[in-house]
């Protein structure tokens, strides 16, 4: 079980980093189209989800380091 926790840690870390890279890029493309609903939606998404994705990456890092093995 501990090995699985660590292995999945790589997935959470990679998923978080990929999201941090993809979200602003995709949001910028959508916002550039100039539709009012896209500007509102993607601005909120970037503002909120970048810190959460950072936290998700950190969670993955802790999992890789074995911080959750004793639980």
């Amino acid at each position: 079980m501990n090995i699985l926790k660590k292995l999945l840690g790589f997935l959470w870390l990679a998923g978080g980093i990929a999201g941090i890279g993809y979200l602003p890029f995709h949001a910028a493309q959508k916002i550039a189209e100039g539709k009012q609903e896209d500007i509102v939606f993607w601005s909120i998404m970037v503002f909120i989800f970048i810190p959460i994705l950072l936290g998700f990456s950190l969670f993955g890092w802790y999992a890789i380091k074995g911080e959750y093995e004793e639980l």
């Binding site: 936290g55 998700f56 950190l58 969670f59 802790y62 911080e67 959750y68 639980l71």
Partner: peptide
């Protein structure tokens, strides 16, 4: 770290 890791676990 001891507390932050639990905050992250509670969230995700």
């Amino acid at each position: 770290k001891g507390n932050l890791k639990m905050v992250l676990l509670a969230l995700f």
